[in-house]
Amino acid sequence: MGIFEGLEGFKLTFGKLFDERVTGDYKGGRFDDEKREKPLRMHGRHVLNRYEDGMEKCIGCELCAGVCPANCIYVRGADNPIDDPVSPGERYGFVYEINYLRCIHCDLCVEACPTQAITESKMFEFSFTNRQDAIYTKEELVVGDDGQPKHLPWEDWRPGEDENTSAWMRATSPSGAAEYIGKVAWSGELGYGIRAPEAGQTADLAEAHGDAEDMAGGNH
């Protein structure tokens, strides 16, 4: 019956009693504990970004809602008030809600967004006690006046987690202008300025900077 092969398992498991444990004590259980390093491009809570001059990047185009496989984003655009525009352009995201009970953090919305308005930070600590609270509104998602994501009361942000939220770069120009095709450029972000290109991207920083300054804050 091959029963003696089964006894190998006993030797192995008994030996494991004296081995080192692989899972350590789980860190981050309480607010003052150490937390583990998170990967650079971790998918966490979304943030709605703003340009350097404070204008919101979201233009209310609903592409993110359209691509979301879990149907968790609800966007309604409205015309920008003439004298107090919220975003550069004609429309802005008037209602913006994400239902985190449905979100699967696939980041398709981040890929779809034409203005890099929606990106994901490394914050994964959601906490709600009823379904209504699970729907994060624009007020909670949009970055603050300093360009950092809002530290909601139940979230335990650590240094480094709110960096590099807009982790995507555009390989082609967002405005569609022919001169910028093939040029890597970043738009300026409130609180972050112009991000340096990542490894393997354009070496011509000055050119990238110059183009970026032209584009930032301009109307398309």
Binding site: T13, D19, R21, V22, G29
Partner: peptide, 14 residues
């Protein structure tokens, strides 16, 4: 606890 020890884990600790 023992099953955890035999499978490289720690079991209840808190």
């Amino acid at each position: 606890k023992l099953h955890a020890d035999m499978t490289n884990r720690m079991g209840p600790t808190i």
